[in-house]
Simulated assay, not measured.
Amino acid sequence: MSSEPSDEVIVVGSGIAGLTTAVVLAEAGRRVRVWARDFAERTTSAVAGGLWWPYRIEPEPLAGAWALASLAVYEDLADRPEETGVRLVDGVHRGARLDELGEWAARVPGLRAEADGLAARLPVIDMPVHLAWLRGRLTRAGGVVEAREVTDLTAVPAGVVVNCTGLGARSLVPDPAVRPVRGQLVVVENPGITTWFTCVGHTSAASTYLVPQPGRLLLGGTAEEDDWSLEPDPATAAAIVARCAAVRPEISGARILAHRVGLRPARQAVRLERQPLPDGRALVHNYGHGGAGITVAWGCAREAAGLVSPAA
């Protein structure tokens, strides 16, 4: 590395947090590169169901504010669903109650109590399409995505390094507070379901949700703490299909297209802060978003960008 630090920003990580943060920085006029071992299509973000909703993320007051900022962006992007991968879709959170949610819930347009839970029209993001769109938006803003494996954040040659490595932060920072929460999905042919549905306990390892995406239906799910396995479990998959078919019987005959597993980067609180490096450069952390990386992406990206260029 040269003795003079670059005025460039290098974002480490190409999932939803990394790409969104890079877009915000590039569109603010910063020179940005994204370094990632895996391109976006191979990250946990690509596996996600894509429904906007704060899930398994702390602290709730901050998460709620980040989520609302992101919601406003997704509502705008939903005007161009084929391009951005974002659509507004009706659905129900069975068993959820307004009085159990934070203050953010009162600001979600159309969120209302029904007999068996909460109903709303929320963003559903087709993640492969959206990640590709984000990368294109970054490129148009002058940013670059490079395949680079980082083993030492302090050795990244940039004036500011932004750490968006998700679960990778456990070993890279290192931060043992980051832990995996395993999620397994089953992808089936959609038998005509147009609304999403969830019945999710925030402490249970098993949940029931179905999310319609173009050309397919995503069925879930699991939240298995400290489980590092990326191999789909056949018994778990069968249980997921059975739970979802109990809600919508037509699912029982749907042809299975794929099985997916992702590891959510859980932490007792999102780490979003600026840390000085020994040589005077800065390291900005933006990781630990649990099951809500998509939900808080834009709010966290804007805050991270503010830490890259703090006000004088």
Rank of each mutant, 00 (worst) to 15 (best):
A119Q: 07
R264K: 00
W52D: 13
E60I: 02
E75L: 10
A22D: 08
V284N: 13
W35A: 10
I57V: 07
L272A: 12
E8Y: 00
A65I: 10
R271D: 12
A96F: 04
T195Y: 09
W35Y: 14
T20Y: 00
G280V: 05
P212G: 07
G102A: 08
V144G: 09
G220A: 15
A141P: 00
V211Y: 06
P234Y: 08
G306D: 13
V47H: 07
R271E: 14
V200E: 14
L51C: 09
V24Q: 15
T20D: 11
T208V: 12
V247K: 15
Y74T: 04
D79N: 11
T195Q: 13
P157V: 06
R243Q: 04
R281V: 11
E58I: 00
E273A: 14
C199H: 15
V34H: 08
I125W: 14
S70C: 00
A258R: 15
T21E: 05
A119G: 12
C244K: 01
A115M: 05
G293V: 01
E60F: 00
G91N: 03
A237E: 04
A28T: 10
R260C: 00
T203I: 10
T195N: 06
L88F: 07
G18D: 11
V11A: 05
E189I: 03
I251M: 05
P54L: 08
P54H: 10
A105F: 02
A311N: 07
E273T: 08
T195H: 13
H202D: 01
P128R: 09
G142M: 11
A266S: 03
R248F: 13
I256R: 15
I16M: 11
A17V: 14
T44E: 06
D226K: 02
